[in-house]
Design a protein around this nucleic acid. Sequence first.
DNA 1: GATGAATGAGGATTCATTCAT
DNA 2: CATGAATGAATCCTCATTCAT
Lengths: 209, 209, 209, 209
Amino acid sequence: MKLATADGRSRRAEQKRSERREAILSAAERIFSQHGYHAASISDVIDAAGISRGTFYIYFDSKDALFLQLIERFIGLMTDALVVVDPKKPEPARRILENVQRVVDVAFDHPDLTMMVLRESRGLNADVDAKLDRLYGFLREMVEGALVNGAKSGLTRRVNEAVVATALIGAFKEAFLHQLVTERTRSPDRQTLASSLFEFGIRGLLVSG
Amino acid sequence: MKLATADGRSRRAEQKRSERREAILSAAERIFSQHGYHAASISDVIDAAGISRGTFYIYFDSKDALFLQLIERFIGLMTDALVVVDPKKPEPARRILENVQRVVDVAFDHPDLTMMVLRESRGLNADVDAKLDRLYGFLREMVEGALVNGAKSGLTRRVNEAVVATALIGAFKEAFLHQLVTERTRSPDRQTLASSLFEFGIRGLLVSG
Amino acid sequence: MKLATADGRSRRAEQKRSERREAILSAAERIFSQHGYHAASISDVIDAAGISRGTFYIYFDSKDALFLQLIERFIGLMTDALVVVDPKKPEPARRILENVQRVVDVAFDHPDLTMMVLRESRGLNADVDAKLDRLYGFLREMVEGALVNGAKSGLTRRVNEAVVATALIGAFKEAFLHQLVTERTRSPDRQTLASSLFEFGIRGLLVSG
Amino acid sequence: MKLATADGRSRRAEQKRSERREAILSAAERIFSQHGYHAASISDVIDAAGISRGTFYIYFDSKDALFLQLIERFIGLMTDALVVVDPKKPEPARRILENVQRVVDVAFDHPDLTMMVLRESRGLNADVDAKLDRLYGFLREMVEGALVNGAKSGLTRRVNEAVVATALIGAFKEAFLHQLVTERTRSPDRQTLASSLFEFGIRGLLVSG
DNA sequence: GATGAATGAGGATTCATTCAT
DNA sequence: CATGAATGAATCCTCATTCAT
């Protein structure tokens, strides 16, 4: 009985905890994306989240830890969105387009988080740097692999895979950043953006247009 | 005689002034590129420049003014490097390659300055924002114009010019950033980088490979 | 119950806040009166108040805001002390004497605050200037009105009211300043000061001694 | 011959020195009266005087020394303006009026200097304090003496001489300050001011108007 | 757990004064 | 003598973090 009660209580408590945590993260996403890491203060975040100063430090160890958490969230979303394309399976180009579409979805569904990540790059914190390095390393290897496979199978032209992989990542980053900064009305919808990027990035590399 | 002496003296003084100013700018370039605008303190800059606290403020009005100066320097270098390509003149692709080579040269010749600009994006200061907006606007229009002209003359495929222009700029930014972060030995030389970027960006868009 | 506790807690907190604020104001009164606005540093104030650097800025927005607060306090005390004398009511001279006594009381009861105000005059801060201008304007008008009324009713001699009003205010200011600077033992008590000033300022102006 | 030349040269040099010194003092008068001691910077003074930073320190040891110099100048002017009134000589009241007129002349002829002295009072510097204390002590004694003599000879009423002397000084100070702050057009001319102050200060104290 | 007052290291900037030229 | 670049102590203020209630 007691246990059950305790369980129920703790479950409710657990949920409230989790909701609060989420509220802070969500507020921080907005604040960081608007002002950038340094210009955003903990005061901004707690005001936006509607909590007190002390409470923040119950949920997060530090400003850095909060930021890292958001970075990890973004990395998770991106990692989930991307499926490594097996060149032996049919229609690899279609798989790649689907990847592009899912990545564009992440940017459109989480504009603040995406902007936050794209605004600040390296140098804020060693942990963040390491995580982002791993993400970008993963992305580069993925793209590079696709390029190598494409060339092997005669689908794509030979290029400097390392450079082109990096360039492609940059192309997406800038497209997203510009998309998120520009007012909605004057910028393409997600479908157009995805296909335009795919066209540009992939079609251009095909041996035969 | 007196005038000559005075002239000589003031000329020497003028030169020393200008050297100091340059020394501060150069130190700041390094510091800002390493730590980013906010994390870099005036103390870091004056230590690196080997001057005293007060001396800094003789040469620059504020931290913001110093940063703006460097931004302007970068913008000047980029603007000088780029020549608008006239589609009626012969060999437009070659003119574009030359632009790419000169832009790559800027990144290689001014690695700290370039990294500084690529690290921080918008939001530090209204003046800086305005200047960068103008630079990127100029770049986008330039690339977009080239794409439109290319399509008109039947040289390149039709694409969403706005998106592709932005993506191309991002491609260069990321390539430079990666280049500057990675150790020299493992990264391509400027010739390779330039031609790889050109190949990727332009060849891919040609109607016939 | 919960509310009551919370209430009690917040009431105590509220009181402590208010006490601290008062402690800072009181320390600042002393510091400003001793060194003057410019020569007094925030460090001096926080040392005297026994608080930390940051704490000061919880209670006051800036050094200026603190000073303004004290100025307002003084203005409030003076304004409360003075009752406009209605010439139609009986014994106007007595009402004036009572005003003088109350003003002297303010100076004796708040020596630091009074000295602070008398030391610094205009030019520290636009807000302060405006407030003081209004105070002195009010004082001048009050005295001038009394002089005009006195002359009308034939009680006092005709004088240049504007000049004499200003002069009378200066007479009080200097008397207070001198009083507060001189050691207690060698200076008159408040009763003597009040009646001497009254005698000088008012009796002298009466038509018949 | 040589000596004569040297003499001529040094005399000219001496004169130039003295002119420069005067230019600095004159500029400082203006600057100090406008901004007050603390808010006025050496930069302001040298800009107004049209000299270089280093030159200033050839002519004055420090900012304090400059200010002290001006204070001394003011004290000299005031001291010269005032003639101790011998009660045995005829027409003492007229001698007093002449004193008042000469003091008013000092204020009108040296508005910046006068305002400078009246704005800042004590606490800037020990030397300045001492000099001003001596001046005010002299003034108080002079007025007090006159009051005592006046009472002795039956000319004036008996008052608290110490308080009234201080009050009279304050009356003049405030009248001057107000005069110098207010625009010329709306304020009395020197004749009116002098007679109004005399009327107020002295006539009021006479046994028979 | 929640609160918010308190802390103090650190940051940008100013300015009187010095001194090599 | 004149100059003005250089100095660095001192000032105001911010903000991430702690901790008693």
